[in-house]
Design a protein around this nucleic acid. Structure first.
Lengths: 222, 222, 222, 222
DNA sequence: TATGAATGAGTCTTCATTCAT
DNA sequence: CATGAATGAAGACTCATTCAT
């Protein structure tokens, strides 16, 4: 997925044999922060650990960013923001609900789901109460799109096209709970016997099966 | 919910007016830890904060428990364990799938869902990779029951009674994603306009609507 | 050696079936303190450890003694003091030097040397600079006797009866260095191969051999 | 004494006026630790005290060394080790016993004896049971040399060249007891009247007088 | 850009001491 | 006599941050 790829490699100016590309260690710090935050959570990660994984000293965190808080800002802005845009940007609320949901799930898996660090980070630091990225991320969330999905769902329910027992305002959360949550726990769940083969596509198939069947109005209510 | 109530209080021998019941501050520490962990996460909570909320000094954490780690052990053992037992204990894998799922969801909401601190704690510290209670909780999880649910689901699929596109091994996670996750984010989601009224019963209704419809085999496949 | 024996056993009043004799736990605390101080040093021993070895709680240290410092006072007074008296009391400075030294060494081994805790305690907390019992012990040391030994030695040197190259003021220290020090390091030295059988009597023989030969005036100087 | 001198200072590259030499505060911490350990013992010295004497904050102890234990390791390695090598390295077990002993005593006084902190540290933390440096130091002690001295002594006894009543295995301890012990107690002993002038050379003369006379076979036994 | 040295505030933990029972 | 509960002060250690080089 292109949204989160760093321009470094393609934009590297040919010519002087740079020891390292400009911005390289800044990017490395953001990468290191993302992966460590995914593994241990924001509160459980020190700036020294981030720097070590990036191959520099802790002082560099304060050179490239103003401090720890600014690093979080940059992470949301430059790494998480593009992924949110990738998911919600293409959504067209005028499409039929099933297609709409299918598109969202597919993009969730292709975008955020392709970054191993994002699902745990999202579940822990955005969805969980008191998450350290919650404020920052919520401020950048395309609320209009999110609400439009709810509205479209409610209208479809009044038209009898969608299971009327669903709660439109909880529907977005259900999608996240059926996609990001399983991805966030992948390694945990791998403990259960016979769960070795559960990858992103399995999660995708399962979520879509449950959602598409769950959205359909029941036979009786027809 | 009875499972998490401590029997000590009712067993308190009436007679001398005790300054405070025996074990009172120990319990207060566990309560304080639970609520703070729910609010800020384990890594984001200091022992001093726990002690302060319990109304004692930080040294008491080391008096009643041997240290921070032992406090986590006690929390899992005495506060979370009973809730897991409450949820999984009554499950009878020989019941029909819809009833089985309904029972689980109901008990999840009645037990863990009734403790404001548990859903965020569960999502953050158990389900998330690197969660600080993951190991401890997983060790106490009734794995046999969890697997029995998956097996029952798979068999029902071969009998054509359940949506064959679902992945049995992901089903438990789906239940958690549709119950604990929305509860964990309740206050976050309360930001969206018109979500003030979303309480545990709304979550329950929505989850059951999605699950029961989603479990049903599609008309075509019949 | 009788000086350090606690009167408890022989003085126990027959009659009431006491759960424990009066003063029992006080004595137990002093014993525990002595042995722990010998093993780990004063600074390395907590009151809780002392209490635990004595089979009581730490609060008892403050019941029987006013506090940690008072415990040290009592230890010096009741356990170390009698041993010092046992060693120095019988010394008669008018005796010939060899007999005098022999008596001291013998009593050092019989008294202090019979208590496993004393030699390390003495070396560490009395002889070593900054030792925590130094002040207390030195205040009780029979200085007159100690100086009398030095004086007797100096006089014997002028009479040509004793090696004139010795320094009388260092002689007491030499005796301690040849008796208490080896006893204090017994277990350490046990590391060397073939040192298993080195007990108090071996130390005594060696020290006396070195001292008596060392005191004799050399043939040339006669 | 050269053995303990750090080569860093002489290797300092002349040129820019350095605010402080590289490794300066690390060395200062080791120096401070050594002197404080000599004065108060290891258990009686806090890292804050060490840092204060070195003129830095306590955090620096954890910056330069990984922690208190590692500081002890470094102290043994960099400060005590060279002194042990200085004492034992030149020892040649084939020399006649008197010369051998004389050399050891001389080097003990010139090396370890020249560092005011070492004798008390050695007596308290190496020789005393439970001493906090015992394990570390003993692991670095040139055991072969120590044993060679005992063997040489035993052989000389069978040849009738040495007092046969001495115990070869205790002889090393006797040397330490006659050199390190008086030095360790120097300030204590200074309390006695007329001991002001007792310095290292007095200790050396006294110890050699006692040892050389004590080693000689008695006239009768010849 | 990048580092090593340094720090102050804060965290967990230990400990002697107190006190009601 | 003895204990359990509780505390304040101090211990080792961590960490984000600063700064001269």
């Amino acid at each position: 997925m292109a949204a989160s790829r760093r321009p470094r490699s393609q934009a590297r100016p040919q010519g002087r044999p740079l020891a390292s590309a400009p911005g390289a260690s800044r990017d490395a710090l953001l990468d290191a922060a993302a992966s460590l935050f995914g593994e241990r959570g924001v509160a459980g990660t020190t700036t020294a650990q981030i720097a070590a994984r990036a191959g520099v000293t802790a002082a560099m965190v304060h050179y490239h960013f103003k401090g720890r808080e600014a690093l979080l800002d940059a992470l949301v802005e430059e790494r998480i923001g593009p992924l949110m845009a990738f998911v919600w940007g293409p959504m067209d609320a005028s499409e039929p609900i099933p297609r709409l949901v299918e598109g969202l799930v597919q993009r969730l898996l292709e975008g955020p789901g392709s970054q191993p660090w994002l699902p745990p980070l999202w579940v822990r630091e955005v969805l969980s109460e008191g998450g350290q990225l919650r404020e920052r991320v919520l401020a950048r969330l395309p609320m209009a799109k999110v609400e439009a999905l709810g509205t479209a769902l409610a209208k479809a329910q009044t038209r009898g096209e969608v299971n009327p027992d669903l709660e439109p305002r909880l529907f977005v959360l259900s999608i996240l709970g059926l996609t990001m949550l399983p991805l966030a726990t992948a390694r945990v769940w791998g403990r259960l016997p016979g769960t070795a083969g559960l990858d992103a596509s399995a999660v995708s198939r399962h979520a879509l099966a449950l959602l598409s069947a769950g959205l359909r109005p029941s036979r009786r209510s027809r």
